[in-house]
């Protein structure tokens, strides 16, 4: 189980683990916002629920890491169900604002709960999120997302994104699918949060504010909404950029902001938005053999919001 640990210099390894955790979290949000088109601005809240739940399982019950991970995921998933069930009936931006509100409520409650350390935070969590564990989980989550994308469930979610009324007419129970999807997305966020807790070892409510949700959303949008390779790329780029820009310490966040604006200006659909990586390979093969696949592809790329 220690296959990858220690292969890289500690600083790089630490960044690699962070990148892995963000990939997991961004993939969870990609399912909600990218694939199903439901804008959520409270993803960090589910991450914090997962982080605190897993930390409590580790600290108070002393259970093995795998249980802490599952506890984090399940706790976040339960809250996903509680919040998702009523709010997913709201369309578009109302969902966004309800999730934003939920995120602030969770942060505010964590601040005021002495059992989880309040504003002081929860310290002393054992270091368990090694590179190997994170890598395995990233692979599992990516595999899971690919399976979802190609299943009946995934196609139903895409149909909901494109036109929920048409999807309903085709016999898709949109509310049920949305709730299932939301629980899965928040479960993954919880797993990410659990990993996070066992990497940085100290949890503070202020780490899980609105800006954290926004950071994750940036990864999904920048990478390309609904695209799994895009989301992975977005998470890698946006997690490493602040590290790369460290030389310009004062101007770091300024450049980060400018980069968001410039990227959106020139690639509004994200880095890999509308680009289907596997189909791209197939397309290039087919275009050599002369089928008219290309037209169909172009149409799909154009169909925006």
């Amino acid at each position: 189980m220690t296959l990858l640990n220690g292969l890289l210099p500690p600083y790089i390894e630490s960044i690699a683990i962070t990148v892995g955790i963000y990939i997991i979290m961004a993939l969870g949000l990609n399912l909600i916002t990218g694939v199903t088109g439901q804008l959520s601005l409270g993803h960090a809240a589910y991450m914090s629920i997962g982080a605190y739940a897993s930390a409590i399982v580790s600290l108070q019950l002393g259970m093995p890491f795998i249980f802490a991970l599952l506890a984090g995921g399940i706790a976040a998933g339960i809250f996903g169900l509680i919040i998702g069930y009523p709010t997913l009936r709201l369309t578009g931006d109302y969902l966004a604002i309800a999730t934003l509100g939920f995120g602030e409520i969770v942060k505010s409650l964590l601040f005021n709960m002495p059992i989880v350390g309040g504003a002081m935070g929860l310290a002393g969590i054992p270091y368990k999120s090694t590179l190997t564990v994170t890598f395995i989980l990233v692979v599992i989550v990516i595999w899971m997302m690919l399976r979802v994308e190609r299943s009946r469930f995934g196609r139903a979610l895409l149909a909901i994104r494109e036109d929920d009324i048409a999807a309903e007419c085709y016999g898709i129970n949109t509310s049920l699918y949305k709730v299932k999807m939301f629980v899965l997305g928040t479960f993954i966020a919880g797993i990410g949060g659990a990993l996070w807790a066992h990497k940085i070892m100290v949890l503070q409510p202020r780490d899980f504010g609105f800006m954290k949700s926004i950071e994750i959303l940036n990864m999904v949008v920048l990478g390309g909404l609904g695209s799994i390779p895009g989301t992975v790329l977005g998470a890698i780029v946006l997690t490493s950029i602040p590290e790369v820009l460290r030389f310009s310490s004062d101007y770091r966040m300024l450049l980060y902001g400018a980069l968001l604006v410039i990227m959106m200006r020139f690639r509004p659909n994200g880095l890999l938005g509308g680009v289907d990586v596997t189909k791209l390979v197939k397309k290039s093969i087919k275009s050599i053999t002369g089928s008219n696949f290309t037209n169909k592809e172009k149409k799909k790329v154009k169909g925006g919001d």
Partner: peptide
């Protein structure tokens, strides 16, 4: 004019991210 107008015909989320970028700046 700089950040939102060029994105008017693209996805709404693109403009949202652009707005977040401006806010960070």
């Amino acid at each position: 004019i700089i950040a939102y107008r060029p994105l008017r015909r693209s996805k709404r989320l693109a403009a949202l991210i652009s707005a977040i970028g401006i806010s960070i700046i």
